[in-house]
Computed example of a mutant assay.
Amino acid sequence: MKKTVYSLVINAPINTVFEVVNSDEHIKNWMEGFVENIHEENFDYENPVGKKFKQRLKEGGKIQEYEGEVLSYNRPKELGIRLKHSSFQVDVYYRFTSVETNQTRLDYECKVEMFSSMAKMMGFLFSWFTKRILTKQMNDLKAYAEKRFDGVY
């Protein structure tokens, strides 16, 4: 299992940053390729741990669909999700901490488990590309959250 971590400080309050990561409407504005989340019928947005959803992402001109599950949810401190595909599984945790007034530290953790030797090899070969995408995605998240926050709390 490969683990990647990334931290950054965002000049916006914790509730704003959490909402940017938790809301499908906001995710569309910073996550490249995000199409939609399709939640199961009885999805409880206030207590979503264990609830299932499908995440659709546009990758290389095609729409890929992943089976999703909410692993942890502690508004506005933590959000954890699992995405599964036939050849891998990804557990992603976003952890939020108030640093100063209107500043939030975001700690991102991603654990990837590849299910086949071929997937493991491809993951290794493209690890530099994956890190570049993560850096861009986190910078886009930061820029969007800061733009969305108007400075009045």
Rank of each mutant, 00 (worst) to 15 (best):
W128D: 08
K136F: 06
N139D: 04
I14K: 10
V70P: 05
N22M: 08
V112P: 11
R56V: 15
N42D: 15
E109H: 01
V92W: 00
N11H: 15
N11S: 15
G60D: 04
E113W: 09
M114H: 14
N37L: 04
R132T: 13
E46P: 07
D91V: 00
P76V: 05
E46Y: 10
Y73E: 06
R148W: 12
F18A: 01
K62C: 01
S86F: 11
G33Q: 05
K136Q: 14
Y144D: 10
D140R: 14
S72Q: 12
P48L: 10
A143P: 01
N139V: 00
V70E: 07
S87W: 10
L125G: 07
V20M: 10
P76I: 01
E36K: 12
K52F: 13
N11W: 07
R132Y: 12
E59G: 06
I14E: 00
F129E: 01
E46A: 14
K142G: 00
E36L: 02
K120I: 02
L57P: 04
W128M: 03
S72M: 09
F96I: 10
N102S: 04
N139Q: 06
N11T: 11
K54E: 14
E19L: 11
S98Y: 09
L106W: 00
E109C: 05
E25G: 02
R148M: 13
I63T: 11
L8A: 09
E67A: 10
R56S: 12
W30C: 01
M31Y: 04
S87G: 11
M31G: 07
F129R: 06
A119T: 07
G50K: 03
K58P: 02
Y66N: 08
Q89P: 05
V90W: 09
L83K: 09
E19T: 15
S7A: 13
F126D: 09
R148T: 13
G123T: 04
G151P: 07
V70Y: 00
L125N: 07
N37C: 05
V5C: 11
V112S: 11
R148Y: 15
M118Y: 12
A143W: 08
G61V: 05
S117V: 11
N29C: 06
E41C: 01
M118S: 11
Y45S: 15
D107E: 13
Y93N: 14
N22K: 10
K77L: 03
F149N: 08
K58G: 09
N102G: 03
E59Y: 08
E40V: 06
C110F: 01
K52M: 13
L83M: 14
N15F: 07
Y6W: 13
T101L: 07
V17F: 04
M1E: 15
H26R: 08
A143F: 07
D44H: 09
C110D: 03
S127W: 05
G61A: 02
T135L: 09
A143E: 13
